[in-house]
Design a protein around this nucleic acid. Structure first.
Length: 425
RNA sequence: GGAGAGGUGGCCGAGCGGUCGAAGGCGCACGCCUGGAAAGCGUGUAUACCCGGAAGGGUAUCGCGGGUUCGAAUCCCGCUCUCUCCGCCA
């Protein structure tokens, strides 16, 4: 969430940012509401602190009087303390209440978009930041979509997933399962080579963790929730991995922190069915390798560039046609300041599939997380960034479709050491 | 799941109703000393919020939440986590 001081000192910037996110004038009033409520909070706190100071001083006095045996005088002071305490208690309740209201409002304010974020309302308004420079591949009429290929070569089975779990839980098998594992290993190897520490985090997290990265309260409905133990299945490795540094104060020399993690990701994605979500296009469980960075505020955009390069490198190695979009204000995630999406071209479906989303959250997450570093004696919030490198299900879909030939599905050279085979037939 | 022990600052560790945001040590930073370093000596070293231009002052925090008390790190209750033993187990 945004810092109160930032909102106070940069009200115009905040309002402009929210306008970019298509806040109506009516919705924009939240900014003034927040500032008013915060003024309120300060007044209450000052008053409450003064009363508590009085109570503490009087209590000390009572102690001294008792020691000197001046019991009567001590007794007289007790009444004063009781009065101060009662007022302080009431103010304390009001204060807690005000803080809660304030927090609730702050949770409704999304991150301020970076200056480069284009105006726009929907995904159609996203800017093509980097187009595919070559011709897009054209497959013969007989080409099959990946779900047909999966059947033909016994690579994954969604109907079997329905039997075991429900819709959207694919069962990979045979060379399909091996391909999945090969991709995971390739991506992890590339990330660790690039200096990211490999993390194998828990797949379930508590509410504090989910809140810190912004899944709660905003995206509660998207997560699977295990009620009995009050835990959430992670929608991305970003959640546990970034939270490793929750409530941590780093030294500047510790920066940057670069981490990567492979995890299955669980997303409820309720209520979306149809041709465009067939096969692996959209599933409830998929594998993803995530890269996460904690950066000095002065260097975070350079880090973002490096992450874009990293993801581009992976797609180049896999020989998949892709493009990069700069998300517009209306399509960007709640917590992000700047997001680039990578889409690969699925030749059989003749559409672009999102396989990576790389974002700079600036201080939005670190403020919720109290993730800071010491900057010449002062504690400052860090910038957090993350990106998919990469999300597997759709990569598999594109690989299968784009590489199909008469003879079978050709495995890209870079993957062969990992799969142990060079064709699926 | 059952029984017991325990959660104090970056770490170790004292405190067991007031003078305690907290002794002492380690670590770290700065200074002195030195040709340089080590040792030694000295000083400093939690976080959030509030007031203040600053200096400084105030409030809260000794696992978390509540209670007793004029006053709680210290007493009481609930929860939670860690460790040890038993049970179960990949």
């Amino acid at each position: 969430m945004l810092q109160l001081n930032f909102i106070r000192q940069n009200k115009e910037v905040v309002i402009k940012g929210l306008q970019k996110r298509n806040f109506s004038d009516d919705q924009l009033r939240i900014v003034d509401n927040i500032l008013e409520l915060d003024d309120n909070r300060k007044n209450i706190q000052s008053e409450s602190d003064a009363l508590l100071a009085q109570r503490n001083a009087l209590s000390k006095e009572i102690g001294d009087l008792m020691k000197q045996g001046r019991r009567d005088e001590a007794e007289a002071l007790k009444a004063q303390v009781a009065a101060a305490k009662e007022k302080a208690d009431q103010l304390g309740i009001t204060l807690a209440d005000t803080k809660n209201q304030l927090e609730e409002l702050l949770y409704q304010v999304p991150n301020i978009p970076h200056a480069s974020v284009p105006e726009g309302k929907t995904a159609d308004d996203n800017e093509v930041f980097k187009a595919w420079p070559q011709e897009l591949p054209v497959l013969p009429e007989s080409a099959l979509p990946h779900w047909e290929l999966a059947k033909k070569y016994n690579l994954f089975d969604l109907e079997l997933g329905v039997k075991l779990t429900g819709a959207g839980f694919p069962v990979y098998r045979g060379k399909g399962a091996r391909l999945e594992r090969a991709l995971i290993n390739l991506f992890l190897d590339r990330a660790t080579t690039a200096g990211y520490e490999e993390i194998a985090p828990p797949l379930m997290v508590n509410a504090d963790t989910a809140r810190a990265t912004g899944q709660l309260p905003d995206k509660e409905a998207q997560m699977y929730y295990v009620e009995r133990d009050d835990l959430y299945l992670i929608p991305t490795a970003e959640v546990p991995v970034t939270n490793i540094y929750r409530d941590v104060i780093l030294n500047e020399s510790d920066l940057p922190v670069k981490m990567t993690g492979y995890t299955p990701c669980f997303r409820r994605e309720a209520g979306s069915y149809g041709a465009h979500v067939r096969g692996l296009n959209r599933v409830h469980q998929f594998d993803k390798i995530e890269i996460v960075r904690l950066e000095h505020p002065d260097r975070s955009y350079q880090a973002l560039d490096e992450m874009l390069e990293h993801v581009s490198g992976l797609l180049n190695e896999l020989e998949l046609p892709y493009r990069v979009l700069r998300l517009c204000g209306g399509d960007m995630g709640f917590t992000s300041a700047l997001t680039f999406d990578f889409e690969v071209y699925s030749a059989a479906q003749q559409r672009w599939l999102e396989v990576s989303s790389v974002s700079n959250f600036e201080t939005f997450q670190s403020n919720r997380m109290m993730l800071r570093f010491r900057d010449s004696g002062q504690n400052r919030l860090l910038h957090t960034l993350n990106g998919s490198a990469l999300a597997l299900a759709r990569i598999v879909a594109a690989l299968l479709e784009n590489n199909q030939t008469e003879a079978g599905i050709v495995i890209p050279a870079v993957l062969r050491p990992y799969t142990g085979f060079d064709i699926i037939n």
